[in-house]
């Protein structure tokens, strides 16, 4: 959960600096992108992420075996031409399980990003900053309530209490409607884990966007736009949103690393997406008996942990690296 703190670390209530304001007129994004692409590290991180996410998204095409295909005649084998990363104790292909585990992480991070940060966080932030007043107050207060939970406790609590309810309801629905396979597809798990991770992502983003909008409102270009009667939606989407995109991207980048880390942590505890759906945290849970045998496995059979650990580490590392680079690009002061 180490990474969780990162998103909060981004200085959220600071206004945009004057420097960026000047750049606005010269297509700041093209310039930012150009600066980003000149950073070798950023490019490398993006490449790795691209590969990992690509592998996850296209898991059905890049896997070599069915990830749940049990083959008791080939258990715990080392890497071979047939099993690139070997097999686990049920003879399942580790490479394919890693790829499918990545898909789980990809889905969860995207759900987290889209629903949490982008839709909820950005929208509420824009509206709260723009309208202020009671709306601002109530959203901020609500957010503070959620944020004042120790998030781990909240996540575990939600995953442990809501999931069984939702699964039962869905099963009843399946029986009633005759539609099969909703539960077994893992959709419910994605939904629950997505919800459980929401509090992690939306409030930080919302506070950041709101802060930015509050300062932008005082800028001359906003005032003049208001003076010439620009409509509210146009004001929000054409004038305010583009100006807060930079910080949004930086925060989202850190946030994605955090969400990925949390998803893996939850599955490690056995509270994430449930088997048979493969997940990276669960693979480690499985090998180390939820940590109890972790020292023994590290000591005697570290190779069993290598693949999932390397992927998890690379994933989070690259998100943080990218976030860093983006931060440099969009926040020139700390360059």
């Amino acid at each position: 959960m180490a990474t969780e703190t990162l998103q909060d670390v981004f200085p959220s209530d600071t206004g945009p600096d004057a420097g960026r304001e000047e750049e606005r007129s010269h297509s700041p994004f093209r310039r930012a992108l150009g600066r980003l692409l000149r950073k070798k590290i950023a490019v490398a991180a993006m490449t790795v992420l691209f590969i990992l996410y690509g592998a996850g998204i296209f898991a059905q095409f890049v896997d070599t075996h069915d990830p749940n295909k049990i083959d008791l005649r080939a258990t715990q084998e080392g890497p071979s031409w047939d099993h690139w990363l070997g097999t686990d104790r049920a003879g399942r292909d580790i490479y394919s399980r890693v790829v499918w585990g990545l898909q789980t992480t990809v889905i969860i991070t995207l759900i987290g990003l889209v629903t949490g940060s982008l839709v909820l966080g950005v929208t509420l932030g824009l509206l709260a900053g723009y309208y202020r007043g009671w709306f601002d107050v109530s959203v901020m207060r609500f957010g503070e309530v959620v944020a004042s939970f120790p998030d781990v406790l909240l996540i575990i609590l939600i995953a442990a209490t809501l999931r069984p309810r939702i699964i039962n309801t869905t099963r009843d629905f399946e029986d009633w409607s005759g539609i099969d396979g909703i539960v077994s597809s893992g959709a419910v798990d994605f939904f629950v884990v997505g919800i459980a991770l929401l509090p992690l992502s939306w409030f930080g983003m919302m506070r950041l966007v709101r802060g930015q909008v509050l300062s932008l409102r005082a800028m001359p270009f906003v005032e003049s736009a208001q003076a010439i009667g620009v409509s509210t939606p146009r004001m929000i989407f054409s004038h305010l949103l583009p100006n807060v995109l930079g910080p949004i991207i930086v925060t989202a980048s850190f946030g994605l690393g955090a969400v990925a880390g949390s998803e893996i942590f939850l599955s490690f505890l056995g509270l994430g997406v449930q088997p048979p759906r493969p997940s990276l945290g669960f693979m480690i849970n499985d090998v180390t008996a939820r940590g109890a045998a972790s020292v023994s496995v590290l000591q005697n059979h570290p190779e069993q942990l290598l693949a999932p650990i390397a992927v998890i580490w690379a994933l989070i590392f690259c998100w943080n690296l990218l976030g860093d680079s983006l931060n440099d690009v969009f926040n020139p002061r700390t360059r």
Binding site: G257, I284, V295, A314, F317, N320
Partner: peptide, 22 residues
Amino acid sequence: TLVLLAMPVFIFAPALILLFAL
């Protein structure tokens, strides 16, 4: 710092035990 930050704690903890204790 980035490398350490990306290390999941459920691996970091047993690794420390293995190295410093055992």
